[in-house]
Simulated scan of single mutants.
Amino acid sequence: MKSTVLGYPRIGARRELTKATEAFWAGRSNAEDLESTAAGLRRGVWETLRDAGLDGVPSNTFSLYDHVLDTAVMVGAVPKRFAGLAGLDAYFAMARGADGVAPLELTKWFDTNYHYLVPELGPGTDLRLADDKPLYEYTEAWSLGVETRPVLLGPVSFLLLSKAAEPGFWPLILLDLLLDVYAKLLAGLHQAGCEWVQLDEPVLAADRSGEALEALRHAYHRLGSRNRRPALLVSTYFGEIGDALRVLTASPVEAIGLDFVAGPGSREALAGL
């Protein structure tokens, strides 16, 4: 039996990240100062988990603000009203707003006290691999002597947690374009030597409509069927996933994560396969 965790707190034992971002927003520090603090926090987490004896250490669990926002930036889902901004200015404007520019909507992350920023998707959204944060953090950890398992918000959850940028638009219609982005990222991670990637699909505890299940089947058949990729762990949490379990077990992914605490019925469902 091997041990791992799905993620780890990112703000620091003494709220170092909160203090660093507030200093950056107030103009008391610059981007280099903020990144230095962030790098130190990432290193501390990786070394803590490695030294604790875990067999699998997650990476890409760090965020300057919100992991859903990070995913939106990674796949190029940046609304046009932020087009005049770049880098951290654009990132934090999406999170907090800027002069005359409204931020993304903030809403509750399932049944937790955490809130996430809701991506806005429409027919004009140009999905592409616009940022290599998961690859950067994987290679950063590797350079420190820590082999990690990058954690990504899964493509189905990303789309179902997004909102339509205009009436009548259905975000799931972008699934194949989004899978192109994920496939490119997985190929890059494989080339870098990454052995495992974790794809989180928490939405399966809340939305198991026919459309969601078909999107899940299509997504993981396509990603799992690729030859040059890391092994895939599709992780679910916040409850039982019902029929989604059979969809995932029929896919070519290597591992599935289930929540036996919030979803006690998962044991019976697993035994019944």
Rank of each mutant, 00 (worst) to 15 (best):
T4D: 02
I11M: 05
G12M: 13
R14D: 13
L17W: 14
A20N: 07
A20L: 03
T21K: 10
A23D: 10
F24I: 02
N30V: 04
A31F: 08
D33I: 04
E35V: 03
T37K: 00
T37Q: 02
W46P: 01
D55E: 13
N60V: 10
F62Y: 11
S63Q: 02
M74P: 10
G76I: 06
V78I: 11
K80S: 15
L85Y: 11
G87H: 01
A95V: 13
G97H: 13
P103G: 00
L104Y: 15
T107Y: 11
W109H: 06
Y116T: 03
P119H: 15
P119V: 12
G122W: 02
G122H: 01
L129T: 12
W142N: 12
S143V: 01
G145C: 01
G145N: 00
V146H: 07
V151R: 03
G154Y: 07
L159G: 04
K163E: 15
P171Y: 12
I173C: 09
L175G: 01
L179R: 07
Y182G: 03
A183K: 06
L186E: 15
W196L: 07
Q198V: 03
L199F: 10
D200I: 00
L204V: 05
G210Y: 06
G224A: 12
S225N: 07
L248H: 05
P252L: 03
E254I: 02
A255V: 06
A255R: 09
I256L: 15
G265T: 02
S266D: 00
L273I: 11
